[in-house]
Design a protein around this nucleic acid. Structure first.
Lengths: 185, 185
DNA sequence: TATCTCATGTAATCAGTTACATGATTGC
DNA sequence: GCAATCATGTAACTGATTACATGAGATA
């Protein structure tokens, strides 16, 4: 039920059309909340009906018209109320862990290429995060250079970086275990 | 689409009824895949119809009858095929990260109690994992004492432990940031 | 007497994905 | 000429949650 809130945060950071939101959900916000454009359009219409967002039709030349959404006060209020609600524990869906345990009933070596591919994906993501950090927060060590929003964005990014580091180290552990089992050690 | 496979792994590790599976999903398996009993019963019926599992009615005295499920060969085959499929990147749902960025548009201090509660939950989980590790894998350092299934279970558990450690460290980082912002530093 | 555990289920609803559709413009 | 980008949508479906129901024995 937090897609509404993720959209609100994104619109508070910068107003935009459904299409633009969908692209943000592919990039930055998609790091911690995914959504397809169909879902975004549907939720935006509901949010507009509830008065959480305002829509403004913008005509463009050479491009289709678009509806630019921005957060309205009732939306801000709803966000503030949500911030004060208890954080329910997140439902976990860790497919790779299921696969690793499943490997005990099949050939463990069969899983190695997939885990390697997974590891590469996380390494690439870590590199992108570190690049983004150097680009967006070069002076993070100097006090007083970042506003509240930037400091909060940075601490979320640091979480992503640490998560990727931890995951890569763990996948190396997994690979070592799988290779040992494959070699009969 | 991996609930079927998670159930299969669990039934291969040990046959059991829908009710028992639901309890395992509350405990061990729930660490990386959650499911309610309603969903488990529904999926079990489908799996039985597909021949992935076999059911045996077991009468008990003093307790209701139960249907004990065990994995059948077509289920094993499906699991082996699934292991060889590409691992699609998992959809991320990180509500706390959304909240942290939302705090920029509200009072950052309002989030502190919730983050503290979150941190306590992760610390408790880490303690449980470490206890489980000492109980189930006391001789993990000595080669030749664990079979393939145990070694794979252990590497998954190590992942959980590292994830909790990383998360606790990050939540401390988040709390420090929120407290600095609340104090106007 | 009341609550907890064991055991299985139905019904309604919500969230999210996949597939398909439309139509103009820009770049190769 | 073809693919990609911009822009918004409908329809069908699957996966998952919430609420409710039943009923017996065990425990406090």
């Amino acid at each position: 039920m937090a897609l509404e809130h993720a959209i609100l945060v994104s619109l508070l950071e910068r107003p935009g059309s459904g299409y633009e939101l969908a692209r943000r959900f592919d990039r930055s916000i998609g790091r911690f909340w995914t959504a397809t454009h169909q879902q975004i359009y549907r939720v935006l219409r509901r949010m507009e009906a509830d008065g959480w967002v305002r829509a403004e039709e913008v005509a463009q030349d050479g491009r289709p018209d678009k509806k630019v959404y921005s957060a309205a006060q009732p939306g801000r209020d709803a966000l503030a109320a949500w911030l004060r609600e208890p954080v329910e524990p997140e439902t976990v869906r860790h497919e790779l862990a299921v696969r690793i345990r499943a490997a005990a009933f099949d050939d463990p070596a069969a899983l190695i290429p997939e885990v390697e591919r997974h590891r590469e994906g996380h390494a690439a993501l870590l590199a992108r995060y570190l690049l983004g950090e150097r680009r967006d927060f070069p002076d993070a060590g100097t006090p007083g250079t970042l506003d509240a929003g930037q400091r909060l964005q940075h601490v979320v990014l640091r979480g992503g970086i640490e998560y990727e580091r931890m995951t890569i180290a763990w996948l190396d552990d997994v690979l070592a275990t799988l290779r040992e089992l494959a070699e009969g050690r």
